[in-house]
Design a protein around this nucleic acid. Structure first.
Lengths: 163, 163
DNA sequence: TTTGATAAGTTCTATTTTGGAACTTACTAT
DNA sequence: ATAGTAAGTTCCAAAATAGAACTTATCAAA
């Protein structure tokens, strides 16, 4: 599989990875959500090379995740703002944070906590069913292939024994 | 920033990326959730080089995401099974699928749909608040740094104008 | 009017990572 | 004896990345 083709395969994971499938891109988006907008700020905060940053930002703009917006004309200067598509990435970021908090935080607890202002409480981001609201358990999900060919043919179960 | 250090920074996103921050690893986990367990099956399904597959599997085993379990003794053969930590990754995967379905599926609709057997319906994975159950909107979240230094100092707002 | 600073990149070379293919080891089956 | 299977390892060429310096455009200060 070549990375150029990845975005064209009938799999939403593969397609997403074609955009955000490298570590720098995800860190750039993390900082965008923390209100970083300018080239040099990203560069200094992340210690990313300028070359890579330029190419990642250009890609995110091309694909519609960020918008490059002028903030002054003389000399021309731009900032990178999250689009609606970019803002929607927040769900994935929160899910990633929740996983890291649970499995990688060690004894010190999570590096960042989140308050949901609507209810005023610190919370754990939870992936739930849009229809019944229940928290998702992988064992209770059946994937149905529309156009993607699944490696095996059937439903997802996680701990099944070798036949 | 060097990748070796990424796992040690006080940020759950960075730490998670130290494990799953490359595209192959995420595709390996995708297929693991579709019941693939053996080296050659992963290799053929993904068209990944054997060398990379071996190194990615070893890393996932070392970090506790997969378990390498013998399934026969003569000759010794192993399969790679998701651990609890690995199964928990499913939340992130679903969030990623939901994002890809929404923004990258085009007119054909999602390549795979998911049924929540508990309620019997096709659903969209939704990230919600563990405390009040509401769907999360990034504008309603305030991150609180415990040990991570935030680039700016304050709360997250996505579309604020340049000052 | 030279010097310095700032922002947003681009260019250059060295190093690291990845891709592709063949090879190895330890069995089993014909 | 030959072929097949599973799980890797080895080798080399090609691609991506890191690190540092350089460029362009403008403003501000000395």
């Amino acid at each position: 599989m070549k990375w150029q083709n990845l975005g064209e395969t009938p799999c939403s994971i593969a397609r997403s990875l074609a955009i955000v499938g490298d570590r720098w891109t995800i860190l750039i988006l993390r900082n965008a959500f923390l209100r970083t907008r300018r080239f040099d700020d990203f560069q200094q905060q992340l210690s990313i090379t300028r070359h890579l940053l330029a190419s990642r930002l250009a890609k995110l703009v091309k694909l519609g995740v960020l918008a490059k917006v002028p903030y002054q004309e003389k000399p021309p200067r731009y900032e990178y703002l999250l689009t609606e598509m970019g803002r929607d990435w927040y769900s994935v970021q929160l899910a990633l944070v929740a996983w890291g908090d649970k499995w990688l935080a060690g004894t010190e607890g999570p590096p960042v906590e989140y308050v949901h202002r609507n209810c005023g409480k610190k919370f754990t981001p939870t992936v739930s069913c849009s229809e019944c609201g229940e928290t998702i358990n992988p064992r209770e999900i059946t994937p149905i292939a529309n156009r993607m060919r699944l490696p095996s043919d059937i439903s997802l179960t996680v701990d099944a024994k070798t036949k």
